[in-house]
């Protein structure tokens, strides 16, 4: 399978703060790729650079084998993004927002209408027709953002914490759609804090640590010695690997 995402020496700085530093990795077509890291490690900044929200300070991003930046309009048509803060227009209804989205990605009016109706129905949002998005609960907002990301049938999907605040039924539905999505040869790149979910859902993953440094990349479960992590702590679970690599410890607080 060819690489859909290729990242070479990617760095992003905001003033004196380095959000990500010299990231290099690739993602194969058809994989469900988990991008993991602790809070503030640069996951969302990486997605922002890979989806064209912002331009990196240095480094190269290639999507579908072509150089990608924030002005790559044609490549943007082939990707779907669910950003960190969802990016919803609070004064629109869900149907209006999705219709706008579909039209912006070049879908015809009738096709947009059909897909929007089906998505709203499937995501249990059809009953909220008269409500502006600003009045939606956080879980409902997440569903709308997810619907917008998949509406135009992208070949590559970027999802930033897609399951946070969504109820179990919604999570199960989204997972089943993502599995079907990758079964068709399309690619999903997602970030999550829930390592158990990542371990069960993803076939490949990468871990970045504070300062945006990549410290592990491999298949799940690991297939080579390199991917199994430190020799003294053999891979038992993604959580164990994550903790051993990032040095996270449960602190014992004498006053707690």
């Amino acid at each position: 399978m060819p690489n859909v995402i290729e990242v070479i020496e990617l760095s992003k700085r905001y003033g004196n703060v380095t959000a990500i530093e010299s990231l290099t990795f690739s993602v194969r077509a058809g994989s469900l790729f988990g991008f993991l890291g602790s809070n503030g490690s640069g996951k969302s900044t990486t997605i922002a650079c890979l989806s064209g929200l912002t331009d990196p300070t240095s480094g190269i991003v290639r999507l579908f084998g072509k150089r990608f930046d924030s002005s790559s309009v044609e490549l943007k048509r082939r990707i779907g993004v669910m950003p960190e803060n969802l990016g919803l227009f609070d004064y629109l209804r869900a149907e209006e927002f999705l219709t706008f989205h579909g039209r912006m990605y070049g879908l015809g009016a009738a096709e947009t209408r059909r897909r929007v109706d089906e998505l709203l129905d499937a995501l249990d949002l059809a009953g909220e027709a008269d409500k502006p998005l600003g009045k939606f609960s956080s879980g409902m907002r997440k569903r709308v953002a997810f619907a917008a990301a998949i509406l135009h049938g992208p070949e590559l999907l970027f999802l930033d914490e897609p399951f946070e605040s969504v109820d179990p039924a919604g999570v199960a539905l989204m997972k089943s759609w993502l599995r079907r999505f990758t079964a068709l040869g399309r690619t999903v790149f997602l970030t999550t804090h829930v390592l158990d979910t990542a371990e069960k859902l993803c076939d490949h993953a990468a871990i970045i640590h504070k300062g945006g440094r990549l410290i592990w990349q491999g298949a799940i479960p690991p297939s080579t010695d390199d991917e199994r992590g430190p020799a003294d702590k053999p891979f038992t679970s993604l959580e164990g690997l994550f903790l051993s690599l990032t040095g996270e410890r449960y602190a014992s607080l004498d006053w707690l």
Partner: peptide
């Protein structure tokens, strides 16, 4: 928050 969406659109 919607502004982010404009930057992601094609």
């Amino acid at each position: 928050a919607g502004f982010r969406r404009y930057l992601l659109l094609p």
